[in-house]
Design a protein around this nucleic acid. Structure first.
Lengths: 228, 228
DNA sequence: GTTCTTCAAACTGTCGACAGTCGGCGCTCG
DNA sequence: CGAGCGCCGACTGTCGACAGTTTGAAGAAC
């Protein structure tokens, strides 16, 4: 992308500039209007967004900690590039975290949690019918985030939140995405059922299958099996 | 090779103020010269360190992402407070990550890795004899970091690095620390032996025991069993 | 004596500016 | 014709300053 993306960034003029800049940058990276490996100029971004360099710098640092940017000293920030090894690593860590979250959650599952996850699956189904890929990814991540919330370990939730930004990048990276409404429902409903069974082994098997499918889907970057 | 001498010249970078400020702040927090919950004034810190507010802000943001500070909008930064629930969460996540790292590593363990871990245990033993608590903690963390390095998943390593800052805080929180040289050696040697066996079950049991002991040690904050 | 109001001090969020540094381009030299 | 050197532009790292906000307390009202 060349440097004339002034039109791409809606003008922003309220407090929380850092967060707004971070959101705009994140969206631009996910939408691939900023190409992987592309160098970001602080002054240019500041000009384009109509703010000074300070909020841009802080937002960039934030995105660096989230793994969306990498910084090289004295050279500035670059859009993170993900190779296939990175994808494998991300999904391997995700598997590690989700196994644990599901194990924790299975031991403290309540009807209220069951209802909440049920509602979320319905939302995902509705969104899938609309066909907005971005929202599909968001609602999918929201389902899994709910699991981590309910699991009860705040530090584990934070680890997932950290990883989720890279996950979002991975999912968006394959361009068009995500399965039909039916497979999304069945895929996630299986997870809820495993939780409801209270059996740790059921949960682990369901999670391994679910994450494995998502990983293969992203890594192959083609086929249209169930969702992630 | 244009990079032939790179290794010969140890980090000559004097410049990076942000990193220096971050190091000073980190050390002060770990050493509890800054009390948990204490508010940090940017201007005051900048004055005390003889720099401007910009590097202080960036360093503070860095430490926030590491979980050593928390920021409240328009109120500034506060030293992170850890309650017993936080400790439990941290060690639960650590258990999750280390289980996975050991499982990965057991499947790719080489004699070179064995030697490296062996050497590290010897270093830890020497340091333990000296009695410097800070260095004991550092070398202990270095052992576990080696395991994550060898495990081969860079994203998993990053997750451990993120967590390690809070771990350091937890360990320093209990003030005096860490067992005698003998128990440190036997405790970590058991981990290496489990890795060498190549049996995933051995590894998991060894890790569960090792991390469990460390967790109980920190949470109780008193007893002098083996190390973490 | 207690509570609400008001006010000043301090602080954060943001900005524009300056200096040192890095990468690229042309020039010189072999 | 290729390689090394030095200059130029652009950019990052850092700084001091300004404005709006929060804090804490002094003072007024009850």
């Amino acid at each position: 992308m060349n440097t004339k993306h002034a039109a791409s960034f809606p003008s922003l003029r309220q407090s929380n500039l850092v967060e707004q800049v971070a959101d705009v940058l994140t969206e631009a990276i996910i939408a691939r209007r900023l190409e992987p490996g592309e160098r970001l100029s602080e002054v240019q971004l500041a000009r384009d967004m109509g703010v000074s360099r300070a909020p841009v710098r802080e937002a960039a640092r934030l995105l660096e900690s989230r793994g969306l940017l990498v910084s090289r000293p004295r050279r500035g920030f670059f859009v993170r590039e993900l190779d296939s090894d990175d994808l494998a690593d991300v999904f391997d860590l995700r598997l590690c975290l989700e196994r644990h979250a599901f194990q924790l959650l299975a031991a403290r599952f309540t009807p209220e949690m069951h209802d909440a996850l049920h509602r979320q699956v319905e939302i995902m189904c509705d969104v899938a019918k609309e066909g907005d890929d971005g929202r599909k990814i968001e609602e999918d991540l929201r389902f899994h985030r709910l699991v981590f919330e309910f699991a009860g370990n705040r530090r584990l939730l934070k680890a997932f939140d950290d990883l989720s930004h890279e996950l979002r990048l991975c999912m968006a990276l394959i361009g068009r995405t995500h399965a039909d409404p039916d497979s999304i429902v069945t895929s996630h409903w299986a997870l809820v059922e495993a939780l409801a069974s209270g059996e740790a082994d059921n949960c682990r098997a369901a999670v391994d299958y679910h994450i494995g499918v998502a990983r293969d889907y992203v890594i192959q970057g083609i086929a249209p099996p169930p969702s992630g």
